[in-house]
Computed example of a mutant assay.
Amino acid sequence: MTATLMESGAVVERTDVRRPGMAAVLRSEWLKLTTVRSTWWTLAATFVLGAGLTVLLCWANADWLASPDADESPGSFVTWGMMIAQITAVVLGALVVTTEYGTGMIRTTFAAVPARGRVLAAKSLVVVALLFVVGTVTALVGYVGGNYFLDREGIGLALEGDVLRAMYGSGLYLAGIGLFTVAVGFLLRHTAGTISIVLALMLILGNMVNLVPGEFGEWLTKLMPGNAGSAISTPVSFNPNLLEPWTGFAVFGLETAVLLLLAWVMVRRRDA
């Protein structure tokens, strides 16, 4: 980076001003994320919704799941709350980006870090890391609490195989949602618009495309971001027609990567 100074009427070029490295940008974004109350309120909501609703649903349905009339697997319920917790992941991913655009502080960020792609990468990494850890811990707490009621009915699930995969899969899915939302946030630069569009894609349109007839409708349903990515976060899906867990998550990852690439292009080209 070159700085220009005026000394005694002469223009002096300085070339000793360093651009912040990736480690410095990561520290900066981590401080921004962890020093505002909205982050902690959002993470608390993630835990309460993810773990609390799982325990509540397992307690309420344990008797029915143990009966011969049950048409659902207990595995469908041990991470049930994570379906609702994804809302908070969307909120966090949006706020990390759009708050700075709303206040105008993004201009300061880009002035300090002229390599704008580095800012996008740093915000993405801190969101992914935080949501993966919180999502995995939340899923484990929900499993322990919910499985207690299933065990009392003799239908408890061991923490192995698909159940174990669903624990860290819940963390991966929340991290993926956060990353997806970061990309949309950089594209829209508006908090309400970002949250509304991502929630619509994840929760509403994913169900509405079931109404599209024929094989095209079936594949459209499978490829919607929320449907493709969510299978990894549950041992047994409520919808058996979705893609396999790792296949679906790979599709979701590809969709997220395309959005991130588009966001990177737009961030470099547009004014802040």
Rank of each mutant, 00 (worst) to 15 (best):
A263L: 07
L125Q: 10
V184H: 00
A62F: 05
A60H: 07
G193F: 04
E72V: 15
V198A: 07
G226L: 00
S170C: 05
P68K: 09
A129P: 02
V163Q: 03
L262K: 02
V96K: 01
W64R: 11
T79S: 10
M167S: 02
G75H: 09
W40M: 05
T46E: 04
S237M: 06
R37L: 13
L130G: 06
G206V: 03
S73T: 12
S233F: 03
T98I: 12
L5Q: 14
V184N: 00
V144R: 05
T109C: 02
I84W: 09
V78E: 07
M6P: 10
Y143K: 06
L259Y: 09
A272S: 15
T35D: 11
I177E: 07
N147L: 10
T54P: 02
S237L: 05
N207R: 13
T247I: 10
R107E: 05
A231K: 07
T191M: 01
R165L: 12
S73C: 06
S67C: 07
P74I: 05
G169R: 03
L5I: 15
L223P: 01
A200M: 15
S73E: 11
T46R: 00
G171S: 07
T191S: 13
V236L: 01
A272D: 10
W219Q: 04
L31Y: 07
A200I: 14
F180H: 08
W59P: 00
N61H: 12
T221D: 08
T54I: 08
G156N: 11
V12I: 15
A51L: 09
G75T: 10
I155A: 08
M22T: 15
G117M: 01
A263G: 09
G169L: 09
V48A: 07
A44I: 06
A115S: 11
A24R: 08
W41C: 06
A121E: 05
L242M: 02
A51R: 03
R268M: 06
V182E: 01
G145Q: 09
T39Q: 02
L65I: 13
A3L: 12
V251F: 05
F186A: 03
D69A: 13
L203E: 07
M83D: 09
T88S: 13
D271S: 10
E255M: 12
W59I: 02
